[in-house]
Amino acid sequence: MQLENLLRRSVLKCLLLAGFTLPLAMARAQENPYIVTYDHYLEEPRSLEVEYFSTFGTQRNGNDFHAFWAEFEYGATAWWTTELYLDGQTTFNDSTLFTGFRWENRLRLLQHEHFINPVLYTEYEHISGADKILKEIEGHDGEADTAGPNALARKEHKNEVELKLLLSSTLKGWNIAENTLAAKNLSNSPWEFGYAIGASRPFALKASPNRCNFCPENFVAGVEMYGGLGDRYTFGLHNTSHYLAPVIAWNLPSDWTLRLSPGFGLNDNSRRFLLRWGVSREFSGFGDAIGRIFGGRK
């Protein structure tokens, strides 16, 4: 009986998802290549971007792991983007498990473009201690946190709020982004801090007149660096981990964006190597399609 219910629900969910997404137009987005750093560009209004990301990590004192997450990013307005994450991981020679969800919102603070453009970021996350996606590094996060077995780590539950100030500039084709974060576990833990910075540029600044897959303007490359800054009581670089990661994105005319980023741990607390990749696709007019389903404005 349970199997029947499970099957029925799965089929219904697939049908609903297909019904929502198939009639939508695809938009060819000019996506940045960052995996961790945010720039100030929000999702286009009423568009949904579905993304899958993967991180393969090697550790000195623990099993290697493959962490993965799905992102559903929706442009509520031109100044507000909301996003849901679903996280999971496989630890080699151990197990695979769902590790929780995150809900983030990004709010553009200024109407016009300026030399530095601020965006306010808020996030709530409900994850287990086994979460390894490393979407942000905060406080004294380090390799030791993810070296233990999943069976133990999954028993720890984290309800955390996170605030970020995203600053981003665009100059002569370059994007430069700086993020600072403050995170608070809602249990009795101190505020923890972290940072991410990134710079990127398309291979070409002018578009070619023809549609092409391998045109240089379809490729954006750069580098990002991220790490922890301790907590309220021990602010600074002591006992923190840091990473340097070249990044590249390929914006295909067929509406897909592929990202690749090999990351290198910069000190003994860091994981040795992180290989990240992601694929995303944007569905324009998602909000309108949902509105039509419920009989809203045509």
């Binding site: 720039d39 209004p45 031109a78 109407q111 016009h112 084709g173 600044l205 002018k206 578009a207 303007e217």
Partner: peptide
Amino acid sequence: VTNGVVRRGMPVWSKLPEPERWQ
């Protein structure tokens, strides 16, 4: 094109490089 009309729902397009906006 660069600044959009954010309050009316047009996003900023400065993410396109300047020559592309001129195009």
